[in-house]
Design a protein around this nucleic acid. Structure first.
Lengths: 125, 125, 125, 125
DNA sequence: GTGGTCTAGACCACC
DNA sequence: GTGGTCTAGACCACC
């Protein structure tokens, strides 16, 4: 859960994204309780109201549900994980292609650039 | 030159990026005069102060130079275009890979997802 | 006895209303014993403190009476049922009219909208 | 714009409803600018953050749109007014019928009670 | 302890 | 001046 306090992207949205990623990576599972507002606020060194805004957004998106006085839980919906995974991957790939096209770079070269970078990282990593 | 006024990315940085992309795509060439603050402000429906900040940033990055009383010009440096192109493509591909890894998706599947999307767009487009 | 835990209306008041409705519908009768705090708390999946507050409120409104060691009973007052029925119906109709007037909808159209909805439900139901 | 500070219904939701009603009653029109956060906060004797939450909710529901630095406007969508009017009237009538059914009161008597109240108000008013 | 609402007030980008 | 984000901290209903 690394937050970038200098990013123009609001912290509460970064928190939503990080929660989705944790779910997709299997670090969270449907039905899991997520930390309370105050716990998360302390962990992330952020104001509880900011956490609340993130949790509110997640609830609005159908990612979590809240049980009064008990806390907030990842929705226990088996399709949720796959849905979020494909949604986020789709967003990322579309954004990438759009960026490259904005540079006048087309399909073949886009693929090549990705392949080059991946194999470069493999050698180095 | 499409600006997204709801993006958290500051408008002036969006303007810098759009100028870079126009250059890379060949819509602008080294040595070209770019619009005056006021022209650009009207074209983009943006406050002249915002344009000024974009122009300052471009100057700071070595992308443009201003000739007193004559206006602002894309720097007449033959290497500039290639440099910006590879810099922006590099940024995009690194960002994309990082996003996908954040979802627990690794090299092979990243390539597959990109390939799928590109061929899907080819069919549809 | 359906409680809405996301309603802004306090749970204990929802419980009072539900008890009144059960009485008016004849599911409870004057003189009937109502469940103990603990029973009701378990049935409704609610904290006993919340039930207690509901029971206090019902006592305060003259709806119930408690006999030491024997439990809580719907008051054995023949007029009670009719009184509550007309009071709740009155509250509902006044609230409805006020809502509709707030939308600039006047008597004739209010009646029409109600009639339409009732006949629609009749056909469907 | 009368707010009830003692209602359990959150103030920000009351503000959303009041704005919808003003629109339906014709006191606001599509395209109109609504008061700025600070103006509205002063007018309503409420904290600007509370107003902002109301405005945010209206934006989320597609009722308004925000132009950076210029303010918040009722969306200029001709269908909006009728849509909200019928949505709110529908909600009210369904709620009313449900309340009455909860009291064991059925169609004919529901209609009669409404008619009686309306003609009573006519005589008195 | 748990989330929900609200106040008070700061700082920011943009007009 | 305009809305957007964030902090700090209060009070509430419910557990």
């Amino acid at each position: 859960m690394q937050l970038n306090f200098n990013s123009p992207k609001p912290i509460y949205l970064q928190m939503v994204d990080e929660t989705k990623k944790a779910l997709v990576r299997g670090e969270l599972a449907p039905g899991d309780k997520i930390p309370s507002l105050k716990e998360r606020a302390q962990m992330s060194n952020v104001n509880p109201n900011t956490v609340q805004r993130a949790y509110q957004e997640m609830e609005r998106e159908g990612l979590t549900e809240t049980l009064r006085g008990q806390g907030t839980f990842i929705k226990n919906d088996p399709a949720l994980l796959l849905h979020i995974r494909s949604e986020m991957a789709q967003t990322a790939v579309l954004h990438f292609i759009e960026e490259m096209r904005g540079l006048g770079i087309e399909a073949q070269e886009i693929e090549r650039i990705l392949r080059d970078q991946l194999s470069k990282e493999k050698k180095e990593g």
